[in-house]
Design a binder for these strands. Structure first.
Lengths: 293, 293
DNA sequence: CCGATTCTGGAAAAGGACTTCGAAAATCCC
DNA sequence: GGGATTTTCGAAGTCCTTTTCCAGAATCGG
């Protein structure tokens, strides 16, 4: 197979220009195909057209089936894939599989969209409203996320001897889930849950080598700031997840992240906080793994 | 990937064992699985749950990959397929392929998606991925929500003397938030939190006028089913939020809702469950207000 | 019109996926 | 508690899929 560069003055005769980098995604492949700069001979063009029109068949079928439907020999498909730099059809097919898989769970739109008459049902309205609010909060999270601050928080937590998780009322589910997750990942942590009103005593045991992750949302009338203040006095490193710069946690914390939750019908979602929390857990566990592994 | 024809005279092994005709479509399979009349041993149940929750993976993957993701041996998948009367996994897989292919409209044209340059930061990727997964789960929730079942659950809970909230591990944050919310709304409830290992004693106090709201996700290896079973014996009304028809809570519950959470990097979101939980809390409180006000 | 190059088709080899099977483990039942 | 049954595991075997390869056909250029 002789190498030839895309000749500028050539009429792009015959041979497809292999000057193209191997497409790494289905979208890239489509872009290349639609650019029109590649001129294929008859059979290969047939292949390109079929791929374009029936990506699902390509993803789900065998080379034999695809070849049959496209009206070519299996070996033609292999050659086509190799022109784009793949080792063979299997490699090439993975692109399609990935694409279909990626758009499967969420892209499931079955049947025609009917204007839902049940929308007037107050329950449906409530659930959809709560879901929409949570989605909005998650979308904002994706936009306003600050990687460098997140990074610092993860570093602080990963460097701690023991991680204390503090959060009450609304914030408690977040710390509770964090506790479950961190323990599953083998990261030692203490959930300050105030069982037996022992929260002050629990937090009274923190030392300079420990870290506290505090979660709190407005109104800031819980005992969380008190507990964090104690930990602060004892020299622990403090990081926080909260919903405004006016939170009493902010002056105490070495680093903090702002996560604004959405509200609907008086109920606040926790989705964004949970997502950040999970990401933190993962980041901490990853750093720990590196150190102790 | 080997695609092989059904051998004509194979011994139709387990088929008689459960007496089900071979499902001819994916929908039929789902119907049989959800009928709840089939009782699988542990590994086969694991398979059923995975098939239920990840049809895309089954359709696109090889037997090896699917087995790995489901946490079983490849041969287990073959046995599962044969129980339903198929000659092997390939035959069975064709069902899934067809289903995926059918719900892939050919004329799909997606807009140009530019990859965010900051996306390469692993932290950003993680947070955005978790957020996207949660959003997907919430979107699904909006589509598959069943108002009538929700209504019944709210009625049951509203009519109860005392509401017991049961959930452990991952599910605990959901019940915890429910507890906070219900108490705020003036609805009497008990969070069964197993502090002091007193969960069995707590649940031992339920009576026929009480209701239990249980939350559990796969793998169903927590103590939640045990506790619910006790409550069931004592005549309490049971409702559940869980993620498949194979949950041990389903046979115990008078009414249940399926909420499938999304997963990313091994972390499951709780967004959809929390949204449903909040909606339930609101609905219950609204009904109570009507009665007692 | 003829030579050189490229493209195509088909068969054989290589590779991998699926299936089968028997022993070990777990579970059930008396 | 012990035997019988069911279930699971793991590896060997079989078959299909994929790839490679080359001769013949088609096309391009002179």
């Amino acid at each position: 197979m002789a190498e030839r560069r895309a000749a500028p003055e050539k009429k792009a005769a015959g041979r497809a220009a292999i000057g193209y980098a191997k497409p790494r995604s289905y979208e890239e492949l489509r872009a290349v195909l639609s650019s029109g700069t590649v001129h294929f001979p008859k059979r290969l063009r047939q292949v390109a057209i079929f791929l374009w029109q029936h990506p699902g068949e390509v993803a789900l079928g065998t080379i034999g089936r695809v070849a049959e439907q496209a009206g070519v020999q299996p070996s033609t498909l292999v050659r086509f894939a190799q022109i784009f730099g793949y080792s063979g059809f299997s490699d090439f097919q993975a692109l399609f599989k990935e694409h279909v898989k990626a758009s499967w769970p969420e892209g499931r739109r079955e049947g025609a969209e009917q204007p839902d008459p049940a929308e007037s049902d107050p329950n449906v309205h409530l659930v959809k409203g709560l879901a929409a609010a949570a989605q909005a909060a998650l979308a904002r999270l994706g936009e306003s996320f600050e990687p460098s601050r997140f990074e610092r928080m993860a570093e602080i937590l990963a460097g701690a001897d023991l991680i204390y998780l503090v959060g009450s009322k609304r914030a408690f589910p977040v710390t509770a889930y964090l506790s479950v997750t961190l323990l599953q990942q083998g990261v030692r942590s203490v959930l300050v849950d105030n069982v037996g009103s022992s929260a002050h005593d629990q937090i009274g045991c923190v030392g300079p080598r420990d870290a506290v992750l505090a979660v709190s949302f407005s109104p800031y009338n819980s005992i969380t700031p008190d507990l964090v203040a104690i930990a602060h006095e004892r020299g622990a490193r403090i990081v926080a997840i909260t919903d405004s710069t006016f939170s009493p946690l902010v002056p105490l914390a070495e680093m903090w992240l702002e996560v604004v939750e959405a509200e609907f019908a008086g109920f606040r979602s926790l989705s964004a906080s949970l997502a950040v929390g999970m990401a933190l857990a993962h980041a901490v566990s990853a750093r720990r793994g590196r150190v102790s592994g």
